[in-house]
Write a protein that binds this DNA or RNA. Sequence first.
DNA 1: GTCTATAGTTCGATAGAC
DNA 2: GTCTATCGAACTATAGAC
Lengths: 203, 203
Amino acid sequence: MAYRRTAQIQARLDTQRAAIVYAAIELVGESGYGACSIVRVAARAGIAAGTVYNHFGSKGDLLAEVFRVVVTREVEAVRAAVTASGRAAERVTAVIETFAGRAMKSPRLAYALLAEPVDPKVDALRLEFRQAFTDLVAAAVVDGVASGELPPQNPVVTASALVGAIGEVLIDPLDTGGSAPDMVSTVITFALRGIGVHDASHA
Amino acid sequence: MAYRRTAQIQARLDTQRAAIVYAAIELVGESGYGACSIVRVAARAGIAAGTVYNHFGSKGDLLAEVFRVVVTREVEAVRAAVTASGRAAERVTAVIETFAGRAMKSPRLAYALLAEPVDPKVDALRLEFRQAFTDLVAAAVVDGVASGELPPQNPVVTASALVGAIGEVLIDPLDTGGSAPDMVSTVITFALRGIGVHDASHA
DNA sequence: GTCTATAGTTCGATAGAC
DNA sequence: GTCTATCGAACTATAGAC
């Protein structure tokens, strides 16, 4: 009878796979995608380099998995922020504070996920996940327009604009490590004015 | 006497290089970066595949040159639009109309340049050229703040937000080929409100 | 899991420039 | 006669089909 993978073996493989992804996330967080070589990932996970290919077809697949795991967390954090009931202004402010605040706590990681030139497979995921963020923001804008808090507008276009604005603003500070102290408040003011909140102060 | 490259030969090589880049731009414009294989580029330029490598070290280098050539034109078009004197509101409106209008005229090409997953070398140029656009917009915002037309704000942050917003909004329409009729006007309204223009109507 | 198709890159041979 | 640009087939890797 041929070799059959027992539940015990499968569990060990799952653990090993998780260790690989975790090691890769650490490396990306410390030094970006560029530092995330297969050899270094394997060394940190305590396995041989070739073993990585038992779990991932290519380096690009591993990097894509890193992106998926981390950014899924970020989408959920933003979802929690935007789902909270309240006025559209508060919800959009919460999105920006949540997204930017979490990014600035892990600038190297956030820069890698947001902008670092890397495998096209990661590029494709960037598009996919930006859409997820846009959907969340669009829901808040739809509600705001429906309640009359916001003037009539195309919520999808507005939400795309907000997502693009927030992402672009963060790139340079995340890359250089230094942000203007008024960065987040400037973006919030810009965003609230943009969607038509009458009093865009948010002190 | 050893062979030396004469001016005549050099001119022919320069022409050949330009033909390669032009053929590649045509292909990207018709079907995106994905359709831009070395063999197809060479065939369209009327040369053998191997000859491409006399001019470019790799496919990525060729794609990067395509990006550089086309987007340099776009930066200059936006520069012309924003340099025109006038109020900040008019200048920002002109930037959006120019950028979006030109993109929508060549949607396949614009999508490829703006967002299509492709070689990291192109990603790196995207960052570089977004900075060029941001610098142009920031200058307009600085002037608007200085003249009192716009409220005090961090012009670099605002300009980044504008550039990110415009780019993000265009991605989906360029990809699917269909845009909401109010897309551009929605972005303009969003942008003018965002920077604090009091009356953001622009009919 | 193997096989096939496709695409990037390399390289030896040829033809042409000096 | 020597050197170079070009060609195009071969090599290598990857993706998809059966």
